[in-house]
Design a protein around this nucleic acid. Structure first.
Lengths: 137, 137
DNA sequence: GTATTTGCAAATAGTTTGCAATGCC
DNA sequence: GGCATTGCAAACTATTTGCAAATAC
């Protein structure tokens, strides 16, 4: 989303264009891997309540996606980014992205709909293991 | 794992065969969807500290897998169960299992290894949406 | 007998809420 | 001006920890 794209997004969602909100969206937009509430707080310089409230709001409006990789902290990323999955290193906890060429999950969605009558809205696929660096040791 | 299988497992891991541990393993074994620490506590009748310590221990020994579906509570299931994915209803929060026939993720693992030099140990694939019941309303 | 396991109470971490003050349109 | 947004402090929830008592082998 471009800078003016953000303006349009905010307007369409009935959200005011505040300093904190703009900083937060900009931070999410430039981050290469999902960020935590604490990281957002530090970067944006807002109160933690504000950060959490803003996260809720942006999640509700569909601007961000939430992830939990099992270390007790939630992470968030710009939902407009290209579809990808995450590789989480169980050793150093680094998070790498993996762009998907073939969308296998889409195929499963069809099976799920026909077999279970369950309507898939989104899916999350994460791989846990050892990153390049940690595999060497 | 059969009852005697549990005995063998405990012995091989150097774990004592206590009442609480046996009850907990038995509960995990029979549960059809991942259970929370609180549910385990109620079923087993142990102190919550004991439950959390036991969960840590059994996770460490590879007996259980941990999941987080984004509602702030962790869930656990017997790792020896057949490989499957979860369908989480965003409306009523029910969790359904979906057995996988073709293992698409395995194919991606190969790409991940060659492209990213990342060694995959396990993956988690979850589908979020509306269950059969909630789709009707 | 001794190392493991357990319960209890208190501590911690992440997140949420009530309320008054401030800022955007 | 009026409603959305923000900060602060306190509350809340899930989980963890220290320590002494109980239990398995």
């Amino acid at each position: 989303m471009t800078t003016s794209g953000i303006d349009v997004f905010l307007k369409s969602k009935g959200l005011k264009k505040t300093q904190i909100r703009k900083k937060m969206i900009s931070y999410l937009k430039k981050s290469k891997s999902p960020v935590t509430a604490l990281e957002i707080q530090k970067e944006v310089g807002a109160n933690k309540s504000t950060v959490y409230r803003e996260i809720d709001l942006l999640t509700l409006k569909g601007y961000i996606n939430e992830f939990d990789f099992g270390d007790g902290v939630k992470r968030y990323e710009d939902s407009s980014r290209e579809h990808h999955h995450h590789l989480i290193c169980l050793n150093c906890r680094s998070i790498t992205e993996f762009e998907v060429k073939d969308n296998f999950a889409k195929i499963e969605e069809k099976e799920i709909r026909s077999q279970k009558k369950f309507t898939v809205l989104k899916h999350k696929l994460e791989f846990f293991g050892k990153c390049k660096k940690c595999s060497k040791t």
